[in-house]
Design a protein around this nucleic acid. Structure first.
Length: 648
DNA sequence: TCCCGAATAT
DNA sequence: TATATTCGGG
């Protein structure tokens, strides 16, 4: 016991208690005002201890705002203001508020010019939100309001310490000028009961995705070993967050990591440096990356990339190919080991342009495809039937390129158990950018087949976003393709969207329309399993719990971790099928579009989070995208915006 | 004195 | 369960 029991001091500024958080929203645009206020009201209780009383007051002019603030001294904890308003702009208002009330002011505007943002921040805005505002922004606002309130209370307390005392009934406040630890000890017994009936609970930090992502980002930056609370805190640079908060979270995170690691007999630090080297992605520290490392460390036989020394990027970055130009890409083939070569179906087309493949150690780098000179992957032919032709076995070529083990045979099998082209582990998720498209990817193996009509792969909104589907697939046995779900498009949707602080979000089988994924009626052979079990596959992503099971299945080998990948990210921002090809806009007004070729019915209707009609949703990204550039060049803003949404 | 991190409390 | 707090020790 014997800990501080501070209550917010009632000063001239702060008459409210911690029990109540009030935000004042200022916007001359009535619609915007209403929207923001309503969103604030909605999301407040999700983030803040519901026991706290939250309220939002709106005013349409900065002058009214100041009036309100003066009238209700100490009532408000934070001001959210539009930037451009008549009479007084947001920055000016902020300055007034700062001088007179010392309250944090959040400025919002659709103006995303860096200069404007910088100016706002320099002038002292707590932060700047670019409209359209999303729920996450507002959650942060609540969070901020709470933490800043807490802090200001603490500040007050530290200068003129106020202590809350309680007799089990009412709460009585006692002012003291100086507080000494010894005194507190004296009062310990007396205060015993106060622990149960505290008028004021310190606000809990809610580890939102955004916060958690920052946390992960910090860890990635620092490295797991050097990531100690203080440094993490520093790096995260979140106002109000304390070292203790971070320490607590870190503890939890470590426990989580340990749990994951313990699943394996831990091949310990094997290959770690390589892994480390490969993990240069922005997201390298992400959960996925940790997951992948863990998987790979435990199951080195499934870690061909490492052995091959391929410079893959791990984690959420998945395999991100560099933008190496725009040579076209033709075909990838995956022989079906189970069938006679004459019956094998080579229908694997690759995107051209820079493609990002996730999946089993297929790294679709630009020069790899359709370039006979490229030893990594050779064109072979699209409809070839001679499975023994090594040129049609990309992995074989891949293997040859990198002379290291394991040696794949012509069927892309390898004696050490690495069967790159079989099973779920080989799902290849492919997203192309650079005005390219995914034609056709399929493993043509018993196992999970990435599919979509003609064998396309769809990367929908990444499940980590908790939004739409994860990917399509069909279950395929030797002869049949069994659809999961509605038969045309099948999705695995991750349910646990944005559950704060949950490292492993769970996945449920729900298709795009929230209909449950219907498990295949027939137990598939060769390791194919029921829908429920397939869902387990995705749990690998989450906690690895299904890994053992899956590895026991024939044809289910692979680096599952890589299913976690970046590409879906590309598709998470308001894309519509408009034409042929997949573009990101060069400016904000144009809509990204996507089309996986081959079928006009195919839509990558991935949007900013929300439930409204797709076309009504606002893009949440304003990423600069240059078709000649690769993922590495995605703007920080984009990455950050993704950061804020995603659950890693 | 700081602050880490396991243990424990809430 | 998630987060906060305590507390021994470097």
């Amino acid at each position: 016991m014997g800990r501080e029991r501070f209550v917010p001091a009632s000063s001239s500024k702060t008459t409210s208690s911690l029990l109540k958080i009030q935000i004042l929203v200022v916007d001359d645009d009535a619609t915007s005002l209403a929207v923001v206020a309503s969103m604030l009201r909605t999301c407040g209780p999700q983030v803040i201890d519901p026991k706290l009383e939250l309220s939002v007051v709106t005013v349409k002019s900065p002058l009214d705002a100041l009036l309100q603030l003066r009238l209700k001294q100490g009532v408000f904890d934070l001001v959210v203001t539009d930037l451009y308003m008549p009479v007084m702009n947001g920055i000016e208002l902020q300055q007034h508020v700062n001088e007179e009330f010392n309250l944090p002011v959040v400025i919002m505007s659709s103006d995303d010019k860096e200069s404007v943002i910088m100016e706002s921040l320099k002038s002292g805005a707590a932060f700047y939100m670019v409209k359209p505002i999303n729920q996450n922004d507002l959650k942060n606002v609540w969070q901020y309001a709470v933490t800043s309130k807490k802090n200001s209370n603490e500040d007050i307390n530290s200068s003129s310490v106020t202590e809350e005392r309680q007799d089990g009934k009412g709460c009585r406040k006692k002012k003291k000028t100086k507080r000494k630890i010894e005194e507190e000890h004296e009062e310990e017994k007396e205060e015993e009961e106060t622990t149960t009936v505290r008028a004021v609970k310190k606000t809990k930090v809610v580890w939102t995705n955004s916060l958690h992502n920052r946390f992960l980002h910090a860890i990635s930056h620092l490295g797991l070993e050097k990531a100690v609370p203080k440094k993490i805190l520093e790096f995260m640079s979140v106002p109000g967050l304390t070292r203790e908060n971070v320490a607590s979270h870190l503890q939890k995170y470590r426990i989580f990591l340990k749990k994951v690691a313990d699943r394996g007999n831990s091949l310990a630090a094997n290959n770690l440096s390589e892994t480390e080297r490969a993990s240069r992605s922005t997201f390298a520290s992400s959960y996925a990356s940790v997951m992948l490392k863990s998987v790979q460390q435990r199951y080195p036989q499934f870690s061909c990339q490492q052995k091959l020394g391929v410079p893959v990027q791990l984690g959420l970055g998945g395999h991100i190919s560099s933008a190496l130009g725009s040579s076209s890409v033709s075909s990838l083939t995956f022989p079906n080991h189970q069938q006679a070569s004459s019956a094998r179906n080579y229908t694997h087309h690759l995107p051209h342009g820079t493609s990002n493949l996730i999946g089993n150690r297929i790294l679709a780098r630009q020069p790899c495809f359709g370039n006979p000179a490229n030893p990594l992957l050779h064109e072979g032919n699209r409809t070839g039937t001679t499975g023994s032709n090594p040129n049609r076995c990309p992995l074989l070529k891949y293997q040859q390129q990198f002379q290291s083990q394991p040696n794949l045979d012509q069927n892309c099998n390898n004696p050490s158990g690495c069967k790159p082209a079989s099973g779920i582990g080989n799902n290849i998720a492919c997203v192309s950018n650079s005005r390219s498209y995914v034609n056709n990817i399929s493993t043509d193996n018993p196992g999970m087949q990435m599919v979509g009509g003609g064998g396309r792969v769809e990367m929908r909104q990444n499940s980590f976003h908790g939004g739409n589907g994860f990917m399509n697939w069909n279950i395929k046995d030797h002869t049949n393709v069994t659809s999961i779900g509605d038969g045309s498009f099948n999705y695995l949707v991750q349910s646990g969207k944005a559950i704060a602080g949950q490292f492993p979000a769970s996945i449920t089988g729900t298709n795009q329309d929230n209909r449950p994924v219907v498990p295949p009626t027939t137990q598939q052979q060769n390791g194919l399993r029921t829908g429920a079990e397939e869902i387990d596959l995705f749990n690998i992503i989450n906690d690895g719990s299904a890994l053992d099971d899956i590895l026991n299945q024939q044809h289910m080998n692979g680096d599952f971790g890589e299913i976690l990948s970046q590409p879906a990210i590309y598709l998470t921002h308001n894309q519509q099928q408009v034409g042929d090809g997949f573009n990101f806009p060069s400016n904000k007004s144009s809509q990204p579009e996507i089309n996986f070729s081959r079928s006009n019915s195919y839509k990558a209707e991935v949007n900013s989070p929300g439930n409204g009609p797709q076309q009504n949703r606002e893009p949440i990204m304003d990423a600069e995208y240059n078709t000649t550039r690769g993922i590495q060049n995605w703007s920080e803003e984009f990455l950050n915006s993704w950061f804020d949404d995603a659950i890693f």
